[in-house]
Write a protein that binds this DNA or RNA. Structure first.
Ligand code: FES
Ligand code: FES
Lengths: 149, 149
DNA sequence: TTTAATCTTGACAAATTTACTCGGATATAT
DNA sequence: ATATATCCGAGTAAATTTGTCAAGATTAAA
């Protein structure tokens, strides 16, 4: 029931891109160094994100990647779903197949449906901008005596 | 982000046991035939459930397994967590380890925490009894013209 | 124009996890 | 006794994950 590194690294990469949003293209080398992910592996993650229109790429020297939309317009769900597939606990939730039981009425499936819905409720409502805001809040808190006498 | 067959089959097996609750021990052979799961594989699933006190076993001929508690007292979370481990989307949510980032403040982790909480919210509040109720409701609905003139 | 940086693609491979299978021991009702 | 069960620990084949690598295309800058 774990996300794979694809989803986790991909989200980290997108967040890194969001942090550097507006500063021109960011090279995979830079992301690789900051986040500790192999460049070659990053290439795999970034490719579907670009094809789906979440990223734009700039080729050639000084090139790299940049967000195709505003951070507020990119949800965590889009990112994770693209890299992991549907965030469902069982295939039958999103596939047409009757799967396990002969009948259409499967009680287990009701549970998996509900889990799927609750996960989506969370990731649908978090954007990269929300992550940036959270990061900023964390940085504020890590400066302990800021508002003390 | 999928459950493994361990969790899915285990839940099915427990539901099967709940359906036959009160009718004496149910053999793995019977569950195997009804649910289409290999007996040897079922043994693996049932073993931790017994050790955790969710099931009781009766050895020897005419033996089998039965629920150790009332269906209302066994939650889907207990079952799945026992067979799958914590239903968290990343290891750092439940392990002590700082994991990905050097700092304790990881924005990704905030997201994973929230997903974890929302999954548990669902599975904590569904018991085997709830599944039985749902099953009964489904059976009622499948008799179409019951309340028609 | 040359060079260097970077994206792009696809194939390949190691490591890990999943999803089982198998053999044999132990226990008990008939 | 015998048939029917649970128990227990190995072992294993397939699938998935987690990368690596090589070769080529594109473009910016010198
Ligand atoms: S149809 Fe998917 S669990 Fe039953
Ligand atoms: S600490 Fe787990 S995602 Fe950052």
């Amino acid at each position: 029931m774990k996300l794979s590194t694809k989803g986790r690294y991909g989200l980290k990469a997108m967040f890194d891109l969001a942090l550097n949003d507006g500063s021109g293209p960011v090279s995979l080398t830079a992301i690789s160094e900051r986040q500790g992910i192999s460049i070659h592996y990053l290439e795999q993650l970034v490719s579907p994100l670009r094809k789906a229109g979440l990223l734009k790429s700039v080729r050639g020297a000084q090139g790299g990647y940049l967000l195709a939309k505003l951070p507020a317009e990119i949800s965590v769900r889009e990112i994770l779903e693209l890299l992991e597939g549907p965030l469902a606990p069982a295939a039958c939730v999103t596939d047409e197949k009757n799967s396990c039981s002969h009948s259409d009425l499967c009680v287990s499936r009701m549970i998996y449906d509900r889990i799927y819905a609750s996960i989506n409720e969370v990731v649908d409502n978090i954007s990269l901008q929300d992550m940036l805001d959270e990061q900023y809040r964390n940085l504020q808190d890590s400066i302990p005596d800021m508002n003390n006498k």
